[in-house]
Design a protein around this nucleic acid. Structure first.
Lengths: 242, 242
DNA sequence: GATTCTATCTCGCTG
DNA sequence: CAGCGAGGTAGAATC
């Protein structure tokens, strides 16, 4: 049972197992040879091959091959699975009604079907995110520069919410855009929009500084910063055991 | 075998199956109760719960719960899996040597282990991507506007490669940024950078137009376009059966 | 529901 | 190898 399966259930038994598992709120996995078609926001075709189909009670469907992090085809949560058997064998259709989206997995052979009553559980606690970096900056403002005083986070501007908003030792406004990893042109674009939005509403544009705080920046990002008169400060995303 | 499993293999049998499957280049899946810890680019902790662990021969590890498209924990391709048994039971470690990254899955109970010789196969053929939209614009330039003549795609600028580069009926340069779905501020940022880069190298900045072509734009994106003197053109991503 | 942004993003491509 | 941008991105937070 826990070794390679040489002959699988026939199509109707597989269908019944899928249906029973899903209606019991269980996770169902199928290994087998199949073709896959998707039509919706785009459309895709996948020729016959050996794959794993993972079906979740929330409507999620994932088709995985032997390589890669990403599923080769999928359906996001919110839809429904419908296993049927036609003259060619087992077909699992996963559809999202709202969006006109359909994933069809047509099995040539089903090597194994497994159902398992997994709980949804709670998500993982993750550390080292951008939110954590923000906390660090708030408790250690000198990470940005000596004399920096944070005044607000997620402060609204016409261009969106600023990560950290504060003042420097000279009383000038400082807008900080945080990135937990190497920052590219997109990060500069964000910072620039926030700074310009505030400068537009200010009588003294020069008193508003923009600071990109990240572990490092790409060259292009550095050039963009220079063009816009913005600054870069190196901050490590997390330290852990140092 | 294809119904709910009430009692699973003991830890050592599970370990042996995982090892045998992986060394044979097969995909291995384990259903069971486990705790998960990840340390690397960030760190995360996941308390005991029922989950599916999917192990691929390329080093990919995916931990899935009963809900959601995304794995609740994972390891990208490129590493190695090492199943061991200690006093508490089966532990699967997936590590990426280059990056200092480790995913540890410690099983309290293993309900089922399955190995399956899936081929990697070839990826799906996808239609309706941005590349397809670009093809449409090249064969039907009037989608942008009457008289538009594409001259190049992926044309290099100091700020990156422009999607479509051409001239309008009046001989002015037109830079087109394509998006297959509703465009936001980031798309305007890209277009803006390309246009400014070209204007900087031009003696006649006004002769360079920037066009964002997408199914629609958000309000903020529209405002940004207006501020920068850029334009919007509505194009549908794909038509299929019309 | 629409908008905006993060992500342990992943992935592919290009220099 | 880095850098840049796409993705059927998904997911969260906010309005």
């Amino acid at each position: 049972m826990d070794a390679t399966v040489r002959s699988g259930p026939d199509a109707e038994r597989a269908r019944a197992t899928v249906e029973a598992g899903l209606s019991a709120g269980e996770v169902v996995s199928l290994f087998g040879r199949c073709r896959v078609t998707y039509d919706g926001r785009a459309s895709s075709r996948l020729e016959t091959g050996d794959r794993l189909l993972l079906l979740k009670p929330d409507g999620t469907a994932l088709v995985h091959t032997a390589a890669g992090h990403q599923p080769v085809n999928w359906q996001p949560p919110g839809g429904e699975h419908e296993p049927t058997v036609d003259s060619e064998g087992l077909v699992v259709a996963s559809t999202r009604s709202g969006a006109e989206e359909t994933l069809l997995v047509r099995f040539e052979t089903v090597a194994q079907v497994t159902r398992y009553p997994a709980d949804e559980g709670s998500g993982p606690t993750v550390e080292g995110t951008e939110a954590d970096l923000k906390e660090r900056v708030l408790t250690e403002p000198e990470l940005i520069e000596a004399g920096f005083e944070p005044r607000a986070t997620e402060r609204d501007t016409p261009a969106g919410a600023v990560d950290v908003y504060g003042v420097d030792a000279d009383g000038r406004t400082v807008i900080v855009e945080l990135k937990r990893r190497r920052a590219g042109p997109d990060a500069v674009g964000q910072l620039r929009r926030y700074v310009e939005a505030l400068r537009r509403d200010s009588h003294d544009a020069a008193s508003i500084r923009g600071v990109l705080a990240a572990p490092s920046v790409t060259n292009q990002a550095r050039e963009l910063l220079a063009e816009e008169g913005l600054e870069f400060v190196a901050v490590e995303p997390s330290v852990e055991g140092t």
